[in-house]
Write a protein that binds this DNA or RNA. Structure first.
Lengths: 194, 194
DNA sequence: AAAGGAAGTTAAACTAGATTAACTTATTTA
DNA sequence: TAAATAAGTTAATCTAGTTTAACTTCCTTT
């Protein structure tokens, strides 16, 4: 597996010396998962944060009625985990499942804690990554309240055209907080509108 | 204004030396705002992140129809800002307004950037704070999709009884993503249920 | 203490989106 | 390549929550 996209990604946030890069690479695990395999399971303790080299995952929650709710999709050049479970090392609220065969760079809890001490710059890296994720999450909350389902779908489609094409429609409906039937209706409206 | 609750808060995440503490205090601004004053205004660039010593704020978004949507409330011992605007120094999506007279510890963008270099431990502090905020935000998205309005209100009331008591009901309705009329109905149902 | 506005309540009419169910179209797998 | 199963569509019926509007209660401010 080729780690260069990962190192390139890191270099957008912090500049590592060659020694730091070597140390970093010595503490990651490269791992392949098959389509449908779980990276994290609800109620297990999440042991890793994962950078995606290739593939696609969904993070979802199964509620008390057994209904699935998609929290997010992740593709190449982004991260996936149950961060709440990872940082507190307590049972996960979410499942993370591969929607395609997926190659990951994994940081285990212990290795990442060590890396933060050995390469303090990584604190900055992850601070910045999570800042952006938090901002995106806040904006999503607002969109969910201030826009109707059709507008939300159009924004999703424009923001993540790759995901819209790769992921089954019923999962996108779940991500948008609507039923698959209603997303189907929206799509046919959008076609007939023009 | 008394900064000791602030230093106590910091010490829950990182241990600062007396010199570091002095440096930190030299780079913050203590500031008072009156009820109804704005700390951040939509479309302005957000210049500070703010720790609340006393008081209460709401963060809200005004949509294209002029409707207000409350993103969050903040009280003592928590933070307020438009983080998206702050980290990118671009126009704010949100307003932050005081609901009571409020005392703040302010970090300006320039001072915080300097502090990150001078006291790298602060990278860790803010990484951890934002990790928790991100996790809470993700959980809120899921609650908004998987629970009905009554359940969401009950969770809010239990999680933030202080805010429920201090903040006008129509703002809480907006935070929950419902109308003030419907929250009023929910409250009367809850009273008559027992 | 009165007046005027802000906040909260109630109820009837309405609507975005859910539910149910029957159907069609893809995609697996045997 | 057929059968089975998963994914997507359509339409009728239903409901959680909105809208509108009239009313009440609570704060301010004078």
């Amino acid at each position: 597996m080729n780690t260069s996209p990962f190192l390139k990604y890191i270099s957008k946030y912090v500049n590592l010396t060659p020694e730091e890069e070597t140390l970093l690479l010595s503490k990651i695990v490269l791992r392949r998962y098959l389509k449908n395999q779980y990276i994290v399971q609800q109620n297990d303790i999440c042991r890793s944060v994962n950078y995606i080299l290739s593939g696609c995952t969904k993070t979802f929650y199964v509620d008390s009625e057994g209904q699935e709710h998609v929290v997010m999709f992740s593709i190449e050049d982004w991260w996936t985990s149950d961060l709440g479970s990872f940082i507190t090392q307590t049972p996960a609220d979410f499942n993370v499942q591969c929607l395609e065969n997926t190659q990951l760079v994994q940081f285990t809890y212990e290795n990442l804690e060590e890396l933060y001490v050995e390469i303090p710059k990584l604190e900055r890296l992850f601070r910045k990554i999570i800042e952006r994720a938090f901002v995106a999450s806040q904006k999503r909350i607002i969109r969910n309240f201030s826009l109707d389902a059709k507008e939300r779908y159009q924004i999703f489609k424009n923001a993540y055209p790759k995901i819209d094409q790769r992921v089954p429609q019923y999962m996108i409906a779940s991500y948008l907080g609507i039923t698959k039937e209603f997303l189907s209706k929206i799509k046919s409206q959008l076609i007939h509108e023009q």
